[in-house]
Simulated scan of single mutants.
Amino acid sequence: MDGRIIGIDPWSQTVGWLTLQSAATNARARDPQRENETAARRGPCAGDAPAHANVAVSVIDRPTSSTATVAWCDPRSCRYGDQVWRASVARQPGVCALSGRSIGRGDAIYRPRACRPSPLNAGAMILATVVEDVPRG
Rank of each mutant, 00 (worst) to 15 (best):
A53Y: 00
R4G: 04
R62T: 00
S66E: 04
A97N: 06
R42C: 01
A53M: 01
M1D: 05
A87Y: 07
A40I: 05
V59Q: 01
S77C: 05
C96M: 00
M1S: 12
C45I: 00
M125Q: 10
A114G: 08
Y110F: 15
A27R: 11
I103F: 06
P112R: 09
R86V: 14
P135C: 04
A24P: 00
I5H: 08
D133T: 07
W85D: 13
P75D: 15
G123A: 13
V57G: 05
L98I: 01
G137C: 04
G94F: 07
G16L: 05
R91A: 14
A56I: 08
A23W: 01
R105I: 04
T14Y: 02
V84M: 07
R86Y: 13
G47F: 03
Y80G: 08
R136K: 14
S58K: 07
P117Q: 07
R136G: 10
G100T: 00
M125D: 03
H52S: 04
G94V: 09
A108S: 12
T19L: 05
A39L: 15
T19H: 06
P119W: 02
Q83P: 13
Q92D: 12
N121I: 02
P117N: 08
D133G: 12
S99F: 02
S65H: 04
V89T: 15
P75C: 14
W85Y: 15
T19R: 09
W11L: 15
D133P: 01
G104L: 10
S22C: 05
S58M: 09
A87K: 09
S118V: 06
S88V: 00
A53L: 09
G43E: 08
C78G: 05
C115P: 02
T69Y: 00
L120F: 10
A97G: 11
T64S: 07
Q13G: 07
E35F: 11
A68S: 06
P112K: 09
T25A: 15
S118K: 03
P117V: 11
G106Y: 07
A122H: 12
T64W: 03
D9T: 10
A114F: 10
G123M: 12
V57N: 10
L120A: 15
I109E: 10
A97R: 08
G104P: 03
N36S: 12
L98D: 03
N36T: 15
T38G: 02
V95Q: 08
Y80L: 12
T38Y: 04
G123K: 13
P63K: 00
Y80W: 14
W17A: 12
A90E: 13
G16I: 04
D48G: 05
N26K: 14
T67D: 02
V70F: 02
P75Q: 15
A87E: 02
R111D: 06
V57H: 06
A122C: 08
I8G: 01
R30G: 10
R28D: 14
Q21I: 06
R41I: 09
S66D: 07
A124R: 05
